[in-house]
Amino acid sequence: MNLVTVALNEMGITKVELIAKLGFSDEQLSKWNTDSSILPDMVKKRLLELLDIEQYYYIDWYDISHENVIIEDWIGLIDSIITSADFPSNLIASDPTFFSCAPLIELKKLGCAIPEVPLSIDEFEEMEEQDTLPPFYKLLVAYIHEMGLREKWVKIHHIEPFSAHFDLEENEDLLMEFDGIELSSIFLALRSMDKNLLKACGCSESKLKKLISETENELSIKFDRIFDMVKSKGLTMKHDLSSFLKYNGSELLPPTFKNWVRIDQEFNCASNTEQYLREQNKLIMKKLAETNSKLDELLSLQQAKLLIAEQV
């Protein structure tokens, strides 16, 4: 049951009266009521105000269920998954009531059918122990795990080292862009999902590709804005940004990231010492490769000698 139907039922008003309160046409309301058109957030907010529901998080939760008991069951189950995860999502753990709907909503956007009533925590734990979880719950666990892993990866490899020489709190515009990068990692976690499992849950491959492509484009734009802000503010970075992102950021950045030339030209802030150490490291790696190659040749020669000796 969608939010328009809930409003009509719980408010006890006619469709005409609801149209007057919202200021939209009968045709548009019918599309929202039949789920043939996505209900905009501003309309959701207005409907929730009319329903006298103050909690903003219900705007998202109503996409999944309008029943408070079911919402609380989902929150409890996802909080339990987060608690026992190897890489818990700090975002969800910080406020399960608000954020635990995020993975469900993203999976629903991809066409994944969300169960009307979630498994109880006891049912979930028993089925997980016996390896009999339905595909949807396997996907949910994997997605939450990957979200937590990506969040930590972004914080360790992007936000903390990159901003070591300036205070983000004093640069709110930069802070917002970094927050956007952290949120992008949640969407890009879908890149690591098992394709067969996604298919088994009814997720659309075309919708998944579109979501990932849009997120990658947004991420590229965010990095571009960060570079402009860093340059315009005259901030000092901890690393040579080009090498830093290439070695630490390739997993997150779009495969077709187009800013490398610009970074090389404008944002090479490495000290002479750092550049020297990097060159020394390249030489060491080259010597190691040559040594390994010679060892392989010697081992092959020794094996050949042993084989000849056995034949004699």
Rank of each mutant, 00 (worst) to 15 (best):
M1K: 12
V4Y: 03
N9L: 07
E10T: 01
M11K: 08
M11Q: 06
K15D: 06
L18T: 04
W32R: 01
L39N: 06
D41T: 12
K45E: 07
L47P: 13
L48K: 07
D52V: 02
I53A: 07
W61P: 12
S65G: 05
A85K: 02
F87K: 13
I92L: 10
I92R: 10
T97L: 14
F98H: 05
F99S: 02
S120E: 13
I121K: 13
E128T: 07
P135K: 01
K138R: 12
L139D: 02
L139G: 03
L140P: 07
Y143R: 02
G148M: 13
E160K: 14
H165T: 05
E169F: 06
E170M: 05
L174G: 11
L175H: 00
F178K: 06
E182Q: 07
S184Y: 13
S185I: 05
A189C: 02
L190S: 02
S192V: 04
K195V: 08
L198G: 00
C203D: 04
S206A: 01
N217E: 14
N217C: 12
F223G: 09
F227V: 09
D228M: 14
M229D: 12
L241N: 09
G249I: 07
S250T: 10
L253H: 09
P254F: 13
K258G: 10
S271Y: 01
N281M: 14
N281D: 15
N281L: 15
L283S: 14
L288A: 09
A289Q: 14
S293M: 06
K294L: 14
L295H: 07
D296N: 13
S300T: 08
I308D: 04
A309W: 04
Q311K: 11
